[in-house]
């Protein structure tokens, strides 16, 4: 296969040795792979810390050249429901693995996007195909995965990559692509990536598409184009008592920036501390924000909950008790 022009793929490590960070996990997974038999695995941790990479390395080490025939990657937040996933698993598991390894590997990314009911169904599927398939699940929080699935997996907890590790990855790529980054640019890149290695590499490539000599301003320019704007305007409308405009703007921001309510509320929560209101009121608003975020994770309608929260900002703007 020709080399990819997308750097996250071009520079994705193919062997355990190439991986930066997560050394403790690497050691343990490598020993499992060397025995040519892996149990079900669960990779829990934040985005861009190497979960997909490690899953790919695992299958490449197990199956060599034939890894593609023996590997199925599914993303739970993309597939339309558990029935689709089960059907794909069924079709994939029907044929036996070709190599001298008696199982195939299914990587189910973002498994915590599945509802509890869907996870129950998945658990039965895991049992049905346990002789012919091994699952590697990834999730942000293992607490969102039901116990019966967790207990069937060996759980690995990925930590956010350390700053030096992210910078190491960036420097390696910059050298190969003949880029020059100022020390400030490196700092800015790390800050903007929020420790997410995928985002750091994407930012680097996006900036490099403009210039090979990279400074901090260029990175800022690219990364700020990706930051949702308009949340402050939503709050300002609400504080001024104009609820209808606040609400329209809220929907507009969510749609235009393709962000979920759960992402948006994190920005709101930070923004509360920049608002021109009494500190005690900020604490009360934060409490309501937390309740709102919790309800969203429980499956409430994000927009109804956000409106209820916005209504509190109207009172806060008038200096009234909440």
């Amino acid at each position: 296969m020709s080399q990819s022009d997308i750097w996250t793929e071009k520079y994705r490590p193919h062997t355990f040795e190439e991986v930066v960070g997560q050394q403790e996990i690497i050691k343990r997974v490598r020993s499992l792979v060397q025995a040519m038999n892996i149990p079900h695995l669960m990779f829990a941790g934040p985005a861009g810390t190497g979960k997909s990479t490690l899953a790919l390395i695992t299958v490449k080490q197990l199956f060599g050249e034939a890894w593609k025939e023996n590997y199925l990657e599914l993303n739970a937040s993309d597939e339309r429901g558990i029935d689709v996933i089960r059907q794909k698993v069924k079709d994939f598991a029907r044929t036996r693995a070709l190599e001298n390894i008696p199982f195939k590997v299914i990587f189910l990314d973002e498994a915590d996007a599945l509802t509890k009911e869907a996870q129950q169904a998945l658990r039965r599927t895991m049992e049905n195909y346990t002789n012919t398939c091994r699952f590697i699940m990834s999730c942000n929080y293992s607490s969102n995965i039901i116990d019966p699935i967790q207990s069937r997996c060996v759980v690995f907890r990925f930590k956010l990559l350390e700053k030096k590790d992210v910078l190491e990855v960036i420097k390696r790529i910059a050298e190969k692509e003949k880029l020059k980054l100022t020390p400030e640019a490196l700092e800015t890149l790390y800050e903007a990536s929020e420790g997410d290695c995928r985002r750091a590499i994407n930012l680097l490539q996006a900036t490099a598409s403009i210039a090979l000599d990279i400074n901090a301003e260029m990175i800022n320019m690219i990364s700020s184009s990706n930051k949702p704007t308009g949340v402050r305007i939503v709050l300002d409308y609400a504080l001024a008592g104009d609820f209808l405009n606040a609400r329209d703007k809220l929907l507009e921001v969510m749609l235009k920036e393709s962000i979920s309510g759960q992402d948006l509320i994190k920005i709101m929560q930070k923004e509360i501390w920049n608002l021109p209101i009494e500190p005690e009121v900020k604490v009360r608003l934060t409490e309501k924000t937390g309740e709102c975020e919790f309800r969203m994770t429980e499956g409430s309608d994000e927009f109804v909950q956000l409106q209820a929260l916005l209504a509190s900002f109207v009172l806060a703007g008038q200096g009234k008790a909440l």
Binding site: E9, S77, N202, S209, I222, N226, S258, I259, S260
Partner: peptide, 24 residues
């Protein structure tokens, strides 16, 4: 998302960054 081993919502969220890359 399929090519780069990530989910569609994630690709959408970082779309403005990725756009520069895909333009090539």
């Amino acid at each position: 998302a399929l090519y780069a081993h990530c989910s569609i919502p994630r690709a959408l969220r970082d779309f403005e960054i990725i756009r520069h890359i895909i333009k090539q």
